[in-house]
Design a protein around this nucleic acid. Structure first.
Lengths: 149, 149
DNA sequence: CTACAAGCTCAAGTGAGCTTGAAGTCAAGG
DNA sequence: CCTTGACTTCAAGCTCACTTGAGCTTGTAG
């Protein structure tokens, strides 16, 4: 098994398109050495880094946030388990909040839409007089986003 | 209290920007009558419709999907509770799947990243040889998306 | 009557996350 | 030698969900 991987090998093994890998490199999420030809050569460790990126995306982080996290890794040595786990230690609460929101929504499906109370000014799933607190795409007025007093 | 609401009143009460309301109208998610001036006038029932839209977005539907759902409502009478609940009846499984994914991710935080096994070809959170099944933004290779055999 | 806020339409811009296309390089096989 | 295919860069395009701006009209308060 080769020491260094080509971009198509990495794409195949990671499931991430080569174009996306170049894009990630552009955004400083990953890096590559170059063969004499100018072609990218990746150490196997890039696969773990990509796994982390994909994982983080599913959790809900933007590429910018992920880049910020990755920049905290030690620059000149291979990251250890604890390096990786330190990065993701804050995610649990993020995941928990999102799960809680989804559970509220699921409850609202029967309790609010089902009972006919779905209404922006009365339903306990809505928060009436808030201005936008844009914590992501789409309107964010459901409970779960901070409610300005 | 006025029978019909202006766009800014609706924006204020719903928390959705006026520009977004015009955009939704363009996409046939909502509709308005017009005053003699050409200004939009909304019946109060639009608030419930908007609530539904916001709700559906948080669940994860695109505006196109939401438009599809809304078009199933009876065209010439006010929707009843059961009309609304019929629309959202399929969402529970969608929410459950997403919650399940988030729980897997949370588990992976300690079991996989924590233990150092985070790796696209070995970790049980990854699915090795899949091609993209784009069921949303970002790469979709983690368990939870269908795995082509 | 005059401000000025609020509304209108239509076109273009935004940002996230990529993909696609054009034009060129390089190594291996026939 | 020539083709094929994998690779390169750079610019442009795309989807989603809106927002912003230009230019114009309407409604309301003083």
């Amino acid at each position: 098994m080769a020491e260094l991987l080509t971009i198509s090998e990495v794409a195949k093994r990671s499931g991430v398109a080569a174009s996306a890998l170049r894009f990630y490199e552009d955004r400083d999420l990953i890096s590559s050495e170059r063969a004499g030809s100018g072609h990218r050569r990746y150490p196997r460790s890039v696969l773990r880094r990509i796994a982390f990126i994909v994982f983080a995306q599913r959790v809900g982080l933007t590429l910018t946030e992920i880049a910020g996290e990755l920049s905290k890794l030690p620059p000149h040595r291979a990251p250890t388990r604890s390096d990786w786990s330190r990065l993701s230690s804050g995610w649990t609460s993020r995941i928990d909040e999102r799960i809680a929101e989804l559970e509220r929504l699921r409850a609202g499906l029967t309790e609010c839409i089902g009972c006919g109370c779905l209404s922006l000014d009365r339903c306990k799933l809505a928060n009436p007089d808030d201005r936008a607190s844009r914590a992501g795409p789409g309107p964010r007025y459901w409970v779960g986003d901070p409610r300005p007093a």
